[in-house]
Design a protein around this nucleic acid. Structure first.
Lengths: 142, 142
DNA sequence: GTAAGACCTCCAGCGACTAGAGCTGCAAGC
DNA sequence: GCTTGCAGCTCTAGTCGCTGGAGGTCTTAC
């Protein structure tokens, strides 16, 4: 299986596959005489794992850790469980933040009745200096 | 007011203020004879606007557009309203995605009862090749 | 005079790709 | 054998919104 086929099967791009290899998440593959990568089923499984984890929002760093635990055949899955729980709690926090944000945005657009930008309610809402200035850290990805 | 004071008042870092100036979101300030930036109330208002919009997750590109509309004293706020509505719909989509993700994560961690990594349910769930491979675009920020 | 702290510019790095330049490999049709 | 065209290759730079650091200058206090 060449890289294009693997990419098609796993639903990611050719560049991404090469990127994962360069990052050491996928082991280097064999090559044809013409230097093209050849993949086997094991690569597809591993890439499928990475892909699914990425879809769930795990950062590559966590995925790297999980893969190394699996590779080492670690005695317990406690660490994997920990990573998943941490990630879940981040997701919950993001949802909470986005919900607050959604409400503010909904309020803003609801109050806009058209008119001049100088008297736009959205601008006013955004200009409102009364909200607290918590040390702002936009720690997306969200 | 020097840059440190402005940063403190608006709740962002000194570097960020300079970054916004470099990006043209804040107009260049006057300088002291020793080349230090001097800010006035108008800068604080504008930076407050930018800050609040960022907290609501607007990308700098949108903020740039909104500021230019305000600067031009545009006849209508239709475009601003449009930007806000678009952003709201993105936020709603992100919330929906995060909710789905949350459920899958919750299922995963609930099924893990400890044991060897080789038979870890989380690993299994992540390895599951049965989920569809939609062309994956992780268009965070979320 | 000197020390501390805030300021200055410029550059590199983050994460997870993505896009593009400029090349080579490979299979099919002529 | 030759061409065409797609798929592959490497390498580099760009995305976004900052953040951190190096190495220097200004300002104020003692």
């Amino acid at each position: 299986m060449l890289i294009g086929e693997l990419a098609r099967r796993t639903g990611c791009t050719v560049q991404t596959v090469r990127y994962y290899e360069a990052e050491g998440l996928l082991p280097p593959s064999m090559r044809t005489e013409g230097n093209q990568r050849i993949y086997v089923a094991e690569h597809e499984r591993r890439l499928g794992f990475i892909r699914h984890a990425r879809e769930l929002g795990f950062p590559l760093k966590s995925i790297r850790t999980m893969l190394s635990l699996v590779d080492r055949n670690d005695r317990s899955c406690a660490e994997i469980d920990h990573i998943a729980r941490e990630h879940l709690s981040e997701v919950l926090q993001r949802i909470a933040r986005l919900d607050a944000l959604k409400q503010e945005l909904e309020r803003m657009v609801a109050e806009c009745h058209g008119g001049q930008a100088t008297e736009c309610r959205i601008i006013e809402a955004l200009s409102d200096q009364s909200h607290e200035h918590a040390p702002f850290r936009d720690d997306r990805p969200g």
